[in-house]
Amino acid sequence: MAIVAKTSRFSKIAWPTLAWVVALIFFFPIFYMILTSFKTDADAVKAEHVFFFTPTLENYANMSDNYDYWRFATNSVITSVFATLFALIVGVPCAYAMAFNPSRGTKDILMWMLSTKMLPAAAVLYPMTFLTKNVFNVFDTHFLVIFVLCLINLPIVVWMLFTYFKDIPKDIIEAGKMDGLTTWGEVKEILIPLAWGGIVSTALLTFIFCWNEAYWTVRLTTIDAATLSKLIEGNRAPEGLFFGRLSAVSTAAVGPIIVLGWFCQKQLVSGLTFGAVK
């Protein structure tokens, strides 16, 4: 802060303390979940063991027996990775063309793409179920989940990449043209190296969104392609019996993503607001 205002000793200590308190309150549910994941199911519901207990790893060790965790986790990884990959493969050329050869329609196309993101998924629940089950016969397949995840995130991918590409000076691309670059050369030699950071954070964010998606992954799968969202949703109400093991599987489901999220919190803003807040 550039302002050199007189700050009292009180506010020098009070405000940071308050900030810490708020942050700890917000993190507490996650902390409590992690804590519970190291308790036995019996300890997890006892008042005397809220903070003091003998930690155990059995919940993690038994995750596959209790919940078949790894199968769902594998599905989550496969579908999220490939959906992200395909969204990039389709999105990069599109955003490139829009950023460097904008036409009068470019803005409208971008806005329209965004508007598809705003359609409530539930509105097309039955048609999607019908189409995937009876017409294309892809219900509960990895292909379907990948396809759907790719499509619902495509607008955000194009949008984010567009904002990154737009920041590359046009002069550099033109210098490249003068120096003899082909279209493919432009992408390979200039665009990708210069926008690499942006592409990576777009990919990370897309991956997070795919991983956390909880409507289509639940509604369009049963067993074969079910992801972690489906797993947790299926064990929604254990009536207090399995808090320990449920916490463990929940921690395993969100842990990697929270850590990934820490790495792309800056890009999150432009990704979520479609570049409208800078």
């Binding site: 409590y32 979940m33 997070i208 929270i258």
Partner: peptide
């Protein structure tokens, strides 16, 4: 510790909705 505060604060946003609901309605 501002960086840590930020990290702690942002974390809930990355919790998948299903886990969020299960965690709150049961454990909390």
């Amino acid at each position: 510790g501002r960086g840590v505060v930020r990290v702690l604060l942002i974390s809930p946003f990355f919790v998948m909705p299903a886990v969020n609901a299960v965690l709150w309605i049961n454990m909390l």
